[in-house]
Write a protein that binds this DNA or RNA. Structure first.
Lengths: 232, 232
DNA sequence: GAATGTCTGTTGGAAATCCAACGGGAGGGG
DNA sequence: CCCCTCCCGTTGGATTTCCAACAGACATTC
């Protein structure tokens, strides 16, 4: 996410990085960028690839995700004011990373350089956008059936496009991964939706045709939108 | 989320609100706080209850969620710099709402009042924390089976607690809703996990006992952690 | 043109989920 | 104590999903 420095041009950037006391570090393949428990910092991958790992007290280790060039990481924990990173981050390739102390971002410098407030805006926008994307994904995959997940997703894309006909940025396998369903089952469900005259599609272009009604013969109880949904 | 004004005391608050040009508004039950397409703003519910609605070009209307006293809304779109709100927000009870223009928050006032930077920090922390919670939920519900969802969630709680024994903030129905599974099926799976000696539990207190291994007789293909996961 | 690889849709059996219903236990009033 | 409610676990049948395998369409390469 190079959006972090959006609106700041090359020349200004270097002085800004100095003001932020940003550090450029190299890691060998296998090297640890963060260990779980370290103080959080914002990292940006200049090149290479990293892996995020979690380990619970039982020793179960999980790969949380992979990150590539341009990706930002650690920003959520840094900005949330967390004391410790709950995850480890290690290099899966020789990599170069830019590390920034969030405090340096949040506390505007005494000189009140003009880029600093821009930087804060950018960081805030990154967090907010990610928020929106994550919320949307949760809305879709919270649905119980493949059909509902598809309709939820397609309906949202249609709304975003402001039209009944729209493109999606996924191929079938990617869409299935995004919606957390099986690709072949999803393909079959798409066929059914088309057969029922609800949607039309070719390649990545979809069209919503009618209002979605309960599926003929489906009586799964609606996931009641509990108003009391707490997130621990 | 009253955390928005955390660290700012009563007396300072009123002057701050003036500086922000915050507006206090009342809505009758059924009144629209935002209509889809409006310019985004940050809202905070002082009392009452609101409902977030989405409508796609086909006229399908969906209830996205409910909000209660103290909840913040619209902050993601406002901070992301969106031009228009994609959702509508309407009062389901007579309600009172505090509305703030984000620009007033982001652009520090010429007088550079000391609370302003605190406010920015708070807003950033709110977004970041929500980010963390949403990401965690996605990690859990992305798993394909009830068993995996449970283990993912319990493992994370254990990690957070830093111990093998820990409490969860849900009863069974709430946990099932959170993990997007059927309560009875989840109860059955918990019993199996206990029978297999993997976990122990009573009420809301759980203990992880052994490393999780593949279930005897389960051979579902692992959801390959695609490094190419794009979010549209 | 043939060979190859990728993407998509289809199909069938195995496995898991969902749903409804029931029963027991804990807790609160009356 | 009895009644009631809420929460939790269990069970069985209907439904859905998952998984593997295959076939057709299309593009690329040799």
């Amino acid at each position: 996410m190079e959006q972090l420095f959006a609106g700041i041009d090359e020349g200004e950037l270097s002085s800004l990085l100095g003001c932020l006391e940003a550090v450029r570090k190299r890691y060998k393949k296998g090297g640890m960028v963060f260990a779980a428990g370290d103080a959080p910092a914002v990292g940006m991958i200049l090149n290479g690839a990293l892996q995020v790992l979690a380990e619970d007290p039982m020793g179960n280790r999980t790969i949380i995700g992979r990150l590539g060039t341009g990706d930002l990481f650690g920003e959520a924990f840094a900005c949330a004011g967390a004391e410790h990173m709950p995850f480890s981050v290690e290099a899966v390739l020789d990599s170069e990373v830019l590390l920034i102390d969030v405090k340096k971002i949040l506390v505007t410098c005494p000189a009140a350089c003009p880029f600093h407030s821009r930087l804060i805006e950018n960081l805030m926008a990154i967090l907010a956008r990610k928020n929106i994307l994550l919320s949307a994904k949760i809305r879709h995959i919270s649905r119980r059936t493949t059909r509902e997940k598809l309709l939820s997703y397609l309906s949202e894309r249609s709304r975003e496009a402001g039209a009944r006909e729209f493109d999606i940025p996924f191929n079938r396998q990617e869409l299935a991964d995004y919606l957390c369903v099986d690709r072949s089952a999803m393909s079959a469900e798409l066929s059914r939706l088309r057969a029922e005259g609800l949607i039309e599609y070719a390649k990545n272009r979809f069209t919503l045709l009618r209002r979605a009604r309960a599926r003929p013969g489906a009586a799964r109880k609606a996931n009641l939108q509990s108003g009391k949904e707490r997130i621990p």
